[in-house]
């Protein structure tokens, strides 16, 4: 499991770089590195379905973000930091860690599921649906209602983007 932690540390470094750097394009590229790190994590945990989806969505979002940021003069003014900000940030982080240490100790160990539903799916999916890919059989057969909700979310977001960005009816 050591490789999981190495990739995780790299992802955290990428996320910090993405928020701290001044150049917008560098920030987008650092964000892409975090996403590809997540793809590696899914592969290491043997979830190829999620890895493929994460990879292609990451490529798409990086392309869209680069297309949106390249050539723009948008630049963020560096935020003036004060000593009081660091004190408050340290206080809240310390309180969060103190409470989450007790809470996370109660969780089951990594990789040991507490729900019995998963075992049921693994046993019966092939016989009941005839699909060799159990992930597919869960999201499109046993839990297809959830997928319908996700499809509705995507449809609504596309309508929203097209309504906000439309060219027809825009005042020149």
């Amino acid at each position: 499991m050591i490789e999981l932690h190495i990739v995780l540390v790299l992802m955290i470094i990428g996320a910090v770089v993405a928020t701290e750097i001044n150049d917008l394009l560098s920030s987008v590229i650092a964000l892409g590195a975090v996403g590809f790190g997540l793809t590696l994590e899914f592969l290491l945990l043997r979830a190829p379905d999620l890895a493929i989806t994460q990879l292609v969505v990451e490529i798409l979002s990086v392309i869209i973000l680069i297309r949106a940021t390249i050539g723009t003069k948008i630049c963020c003014d560096p935020i003036k930091t004060r000593a009081a900000y660091f004190v408050f940030a340290a206080l809240f982080t310390g309180a969060f860690l103190a409470f989450s240490y007790r809470a996370l100790a109660q969780l089951p160990a990594f990789g040991s599921p507490i729900m019995k539903m998963g075992a049921q799916y693994i046993q019966e999916a092939a016989a009941k649906t005839g699909a060799a890919n159990i992930v597919s059989s869960v999201i499109l057969d046993f839990r297809a209602y959830d997928t319908l909700g996700e499809a509705t979310i995507l449809f609504t977001s596309v309508i929203g983007v097209l309504a906000v960005l439309r060219l027809a009816g825009r005042n020149k």
């Binding site: 392309i63 060799a132 890919n133 597919s136």
Partner: peptide, 21 residues
């Protein structure tokens, strides 16, 4: 091949959108 190998409608749809992009 979404029901046999990893992948499926969502990943395949994004790949096809990427080819047009």
């Amino acid at each position: 091949h979404g029901h046999i190998t990893p992948g499926g409608g969502f990943a395949g749809g994004v790949i096809i959108a990427l080819s047009f992009i």
